[in-house]
């Protein structure tokens, strides 16, 4: 899980082009949207593509993303439980 969390942090930084943010700057329990990292609905769509491309997880309904992307931790748990690659 530790490694998956680190991988996800790196992938998030890369795909969302978060300049100057390092993996250790992201608290895996902090919220990704709103107050925390300040991500928005377009970022959520990017994260859906990330999960599909890197882990073979297809989200049929984008609104599911809300719970899954609460934090890096919740995202990692979802990936661990549902990954197909």
């Amino acid at each position: 899980m530790e490694q998956l969390i680190l991988d996800l942090k790196q992938q998030i930084i890369e795909v969302l082009n978060l300049e100057d943010v390092k993996p250790e700057d992201i608290d895996e329990n902090a919220s990704l949207f709103g107050e925390g990292l300040g991500l928005d609905s377009i970022d959520a769509l990017e994260l859906i593509v990330l999960m599909e491309k890197n882990y073979g997880i297809k989200l049929r309904d984008p609104s599911q993303g809300k719970q899954i992307f609460t934090s890096v931790k919740t995202m990692a748990e979802y990936v661990a439980a549902n990954r197909t690659k």
Binding site: N17, I42, L45, V49, K53
Partner: peptide, 10 residues
């Protein structure tokens, strides 16, 4: 066409 990123389109 599979894993295209929305931000580039927007």
């Amino acid at each position: 066409e599979e894993f295209l990123q929305p931000a580039f389109f927007i």
